[in-house]
Design a protein around this nucleic acid. Structure first.
Lengths: 90, 90, 90, 90
DNA sequence: AACGGCGACACGTCAC
DNA sequence: GTGACGTGTCGCCGTT
């Protein structure tokens, strides 16, 4: 029978191929995740260095966050914050 | 044209209402967060007690975590079965 | 000699007590965590309400965070941020 | 006055050095984060491919998660054993 | 008393 | 638009 995937002679082959495919996918992802983890470690090291040099790591993170955003976004948030503060009399 | 929210005479009223609404929201949340914090303190106390009684707090946390996860694991097993079947070409 | 905890006749009793004690600890913590979870749900509801009323939930969170801090803290962070920004020519 | 960091003649130099240092830190972190992001994109691509091949991405993630956790579970078991033994008064 | 590790919370993203 | 998921950040605790 030529039914979709489950016909006799091809079962093993197709199944085997699928299993290999699955294994390949998983292993590639795991490899990439290891690299990601390594990079995370590198970043951590840099922040340690920064701290040793007397910088405030939390503020550095803020800077990086701000640099990542659209200036308009930042402005928007600050404006709303002001409005709410005024509304509360703060 | 009386655009959406900021037209003259209603500013104060609308603003006032909005301010009250905002204040209410914030205060209710702050109240609930205090209660949450109090509960966190209670939990902490129990763990202190446990520690004093010679138990390993970290392991108790593990147990609690596991007891919480067990229902989820059931369906996880089901899906995993499916997976392995796929990997086998079934 | 009656060594610390392991002497014969008391083993069961002591063990039983310890087990009860452990069970009690775990159940009390689980109970408190349920209450915490319930409160978290309440908070979530309030934010949903806030959103429906047209407020920006993220900014409301900022407000709450600021109200929770020492004014000096806020000032400190902002000052450092300014310094770093200047140092970077931002 | 030879106060800590801000004395006259060195201000520019020290400030300049610190600014360079800060800039270096930030740029290196940003670079690494880009690499991380690129890897995340690669992983995403693989999952897209997997999905196109008919796999259930969510379940693949479960498998990867489990493969990652298994070593951890070993020591978890050990500690749990200890726990249960304690619960039994041993 | 600062440091690192751990756990909880909040945010952004993505699929539905 | 909503809900779930993964990721990043913050605070707490134990340690040195």
């Amino acid at each position: 029978m030529d039914s979709d995937v489950m016909s006799n002679g091809d079962d093993a082959a197709v199944g085997g191929i699928a299993a290999d495919r699955l294994r390949s996918i998983i292993e590639r992802v795991e490899r990439l995740e290891e690299e990601r983890k390594a990079l995370a470690g590198d970043i951590k090291d840099i922040f340690s260095e920064a701290k040793s040099a007397g910088f405030d790591v939390k503020v550095i993170r803020q800077i990086i966050r701000i640099r990542k955003q659209e200036p308009a976004e930042v402005e928007e948030q600050e404006t709303l914050l002001d409005i709410y503060r005024r509304a509360l009399g703060m």
